[in-house]
């Protein structure tokens, strides 16, 4: 190969994101380059460091490509939080990913200018997995839930739950020991954390908008990208943006459906669907989170209201795409 790229991420190689997205994506790039690009994937932080460092590793060239969550470094990339606010995201991963990819060049990429952004996307609907059934807003009171992103944490607090922040690897243990009552994640993550064995109840939100999503980025070292010959750059470009976002979103949707079916088939697990009326109460309860976020963005000279409006519009536009 003419160019070897080191891709680094924090999940183990058995994870869906590795096996069903990053690996096929890399193989696709390799094939389309006629074997001139080779991508070595280093899972599970093999190249060293902790997940919050991944972005800097791409910026500094410690890795050539990284997959990470902007939320791993809270406060640093505020604009994408617009997608992570309560009841903004759509139900499907493809919807949210397309919305992210569409808005990325105009709304988000500026904050990631230290790297070459290959793709920004967001997963499908996140839901509440807990050992006590959550059928209404009242059931949330005092429930100890591990929250996935800062904004989802704010939302849980607004809903009356005790939002507990802890690293993902601690979740199964904390659940087994009753340290937390549940966790808020999309279906895709459930098997790897064995949530379906650890809790019995899964509360889904019907339709869109849904409780929350989390955003992801595939980032490339800038000098490495710019140093590529034009034809190889094109191979990368052809697999960036919308192309990669749709691949990722579809993977989350496909796994999400499969996992939901698997859990549904387990006799002791219950999937609870909230009614539309109930969801309306939840939306009202979390409205202040959105308002507080918009206000905090003002202090950073960011027009939060416009971001929220544009994200809502992009999600609506891609609802059936």
């Amino acid at each position: 190969p003419q160019v070897t790229l080191r891709m680094h991420h924090f999940l183990p190689p058995v994870a869906n994101a590795h096996a069903r997205f990053l690996l096929p994506w890399s193989k696709k790039v390799e094939a389309e380059s006629g074997g001139r690009i080779k991508i070595d994937i280093f899972p599970a932080m093999q190249l060293g460091g902790a997940p919050p460092q991944l972005f800097d590793q791409a910026r500094d060239g410690v890795a050539d490509i990284v997959w990470t969550l902007p939320g791993n470094t809270p406060g640093r990339f505020p604009s994408v939080e617009a997608m992570e606010l309560p009841f903004i995201a759509g139900k499907r991963g493809v919807t949210n990913s397309r919305a992210m990819a569409e808005l990325a060049p105009t709304h988000f990429v500026k904050e990631f200018s230290e790297v070459h952004t290959l793709c920004l996307w967001a997963h499908d609907h996140g839901l509440i997995h807990s050992n006590k059934p959550v059928r209404s807003l009242d059931d949330m009171k005092g429930l100890k839930l591990r929250f996935p992103t800062r904004q989802a944490g704010e939302a849980l607090r607004a809903l009356g739950a005790t939002a507990i922040g802890m690293p993902v690897p601690q979740v199964p243990e904390a659940l087994a020991q009753g340290v937390i009552d549940g966790a808020v994640v999309p279906w895709e993550v459930v098997p790897s954390l064995r949530l379906h064995e650890l809790v019995r109840n899964h509360t889904e939100f019907p339709g869109s908008p849904t409780l929350y999503t989390a955003t992801f980025i595939l980032a490339m070292n800038k000098p490495k990208y710019e140093g590529l010959p034009a034809d190889l750059k094109k191979v990368i470009d052809d697999n960036s943006g919308m192309v990669a976002a749709v691949m990722a979103g579809a993977m989350w949707d496909e796994r999400g459906t499969a996992v939901a079916e698997m859990v549904k088939a387990r006799p002791r697990n219950t999937i609870i669907q909230l009614s539309a009326d109930e969801v309306a109460k939840w939306r009202t309860a979390t409205k202040p989170v959105e308002e507080a976020w918009i206000k905090s963005m003002k202090e950073r000279n960011i027009d939060g209201q416009k971001l929220v409006d544009d994200v809502r519009a992009a999600v609506a536009k891609n609802m059936n795409a």
């Binding site: 800097d56 470094t73 809270p74 406060g75 640093r76 922040g165």
Partner: peptide
Amino acid sequence: GAYDAISSKTSSMVLAFP
């Protein structure tokens, strides 16, 4: 690294500690 983290306003998840 500290300079980077301070200037990029990187903070902890819950308490927003810089």
